[in-house]
Amino acid sequence: MNKYTSPLLFPVRLENDIILVLDEIRLPFEEVFIPIRKINEAIKILYEMRTRAFGQVLLFFYSAVIFKNKVPLDELASKFNKIRPTFDFPLLAELLKERLKKTKSIEVAVNDLILYFDTLRRARMKKLAKILPNPANILTICNVNGELIYLYEELKNFKKEAFFYILETRPYLQGTRLTFWELRKNNIPAKLICDNQIATLMKKGLINSVVCGADRVTKKGDIINKIGTYPLARLAKYFNIPFYALTQYPKDIDVDTIQIEERPKDEVFMFLGKNHSSIIEAIYPSFDITKNEFITQCIEI
């Protein structure tokens, strides 16, 4: 058994034809799984951001299994894409179709793909751990579903010390509620910061590498990731700090043509004591764009 682990590594499971989704909104206070039996339930929890990142990949694949006789794959991808327009669900459908050519059932294809992805995630972290300095003082944003746990293990294997600085990642606080929580749960050294503290930390020389995920990547190496990634990359470049993006399946498209999802304004206030959305106008782009000139290296899966 691994010494370090996180429920966020596999936040969605399939058990007896029911999809169980770890409700990320309720973390870190409660670890609750939401049962999904109908396609509308899957769509609803996706819309409500109960799961995201690798969780939405798993949700898509398991939906493909349990709704196989009701919703064709392309239609499923289109339904998911309508809710989360920035993420490439049609690509997941294509990968699954490819896998189905080699296996007899969708259940086997999905399980194979998930195991394959996990192997790739770990290999990607090994690649990154080899590159990072010793000690590695890593600044990170949002949450990459347990991959930083893999990174920490790989850094240890290389006999490298590591310390994580985590951006709280407003408005959903994924940095605080997910990344900081999963690292500290494993007693991994980490400190939490406000999103606006990055420049001062970099100026003080506390950071020597930045690591982030990427929801989309182009063949040119431009990425789309959680809102706040772009200023992180701009400032890293200004302070000569290497910036690494964890990427997968680059596409030959212009990054500026990808639709940036804008979420409802009430979500800007959702973790505050009061919902101010009826009296305060707000915006909520949930992703931003970072061009390759600000990225040191894309660590491909």
């Binding site: 951006l167 990642t169 407003r170 408005p171 406000c194 999103d195 606006n196 809102i227 706040g228 772009y230 200023p231 992180l232 701009r234 940036i260 800007v268 505050l272 101010h276 305060i280 106008e281 707000a282 915006i283 909520y284 782009p285 931003d288 764009i289």
Partner: peptide
């Protein structure tokens, strides 16, 4: 922004829009 600046701007009748600190980069972009 929320607790101090917005009440002040409201009192003065100034139009404003609210954002979290990490959204500013995208608005510059």
């Amino acid at each position: 922004g929320l607790k101090y600046n917005i009440p002040l701007l409201k009192k003065e009748g100034v139009r404003f829009i609210y954002a979290t600190d990490n959204m500013l980069g995208f608005l510059f972009y």
